[in-house]
């Protein structure tokens, strides 16, 4: 970059970052939001590191509030397959749904770059379907987590407890369920917000206001948010379900 253009880009009138204001602000919002999620996940890592780990054989694992549970044993159910042990399968399906809806979102943004309103409508609809499917899966996952197993777990205070609440849970230490609710809940809330934003884009594209007001860059900004939601899930999947 020559000295003249460098000077010009900092003297006003030209953006030194080369993107529109709305997109820049979306990026900085994402940076802030990334800190919030990182704080959740780091706090989770801290509490988990402090809590006693299960040391026995994995085959003999049973739930207890004395040690941190093994994720494969907690998240091992799939809808319509009651009693079948399918560790991490359902959460894997959820991961694929979210990645796929991220892909359709890239196609929607690509269509927006060409001012192709029909393309935006088609791909936003698919993105919306993916988002709603993910939320549906999460609703099932939460219900299953809250209701718990038939046998329940005998806690160290002597009560037999089924499922989970913010106060007690049958899977492990009190903080385990609390972190599950807060981390996946906060992420789910972001997905919900993303679905609303996607719906607004689809609505504006369908009614023609998107084209009339020339708001094609807005599709890209919503796209950035949606990819960020996918990105957060990638981290939640690793740190909450895999490790």
């Amino acid at each position: 970059m020559s000295a003249e253009t460098l000077k010009n880009s900092w003297m006003g009138g030209v953006s030194p970052v080369g993107v529109a204001n709305g997109k820049l602000m979306m990026w900085y919002f994402i940076v802030g939001d990334a800190f919030t999620f990182a704080a959740f996940l780091v706090a989770y890592g801290f509490v988990r590191d402090v809590a006693p780990a299960y040391t026995g054989l994995i085959e003999n694992f049973s739930f207890s509030d004395l040690y941190w549970p093994v994720a494969d044993k907690v998240f091992n159910a799939v809808p319509f397959l009651h009693g079948v042990n399918a560790p991490l399968i359902f959460v894997g399906i959820m991961t694929f749904i979210l990645i796929l809806s991220s892909v359709t979102m890239v196609f929607a943004v690509e269509a927006a770059e060409r001012k192709d309103v029909q393309g935006i409508q088609k791909w936003m609809l698919w993105t919306l379907v993916g988002g709603i499917a993910f939320l549906g899966c999460q609703a099932w996952e939460w219900t299953h987590f809250i209701i718990g197993t038939h046998e329940g777990t005998l806690l160290s205070d002597g009560t037999l407890y089924h499922g989970a609440s913010l106060v007690k849970n049958q899977y492990g230490p009190q903080a385990f369920a609390a972190f599950f609710f807060f981390i996946t809940g906060f992420h789910g809330f972001h997905v919900f917000t993303g679905v609303l934003l996607n719906f607004i884009v689809l609505y504006q594209a369908s009614t023609g206001t998107l084209h009339k007001n020339g708001r094609y860059p807005w599709v890209e900004n919503v796209g950035l948010y949606w990819h960020f939601v996918d990105l957060v899930w990638v981290f939640v999947f690793t740190f909450f379900y895999l490790i």
Binding site: P16, V17, G18, V19, L24, W27, Y28, I30, V31
Partner: peptide, 9 residues
């Protein structure tokens, strides 16, 4: 994107 944006993120 431009380097400036990449590093500010």
């Amino acid at each position: 994107e431009k380097k400036f944006l990449i590093w500010s993120v």
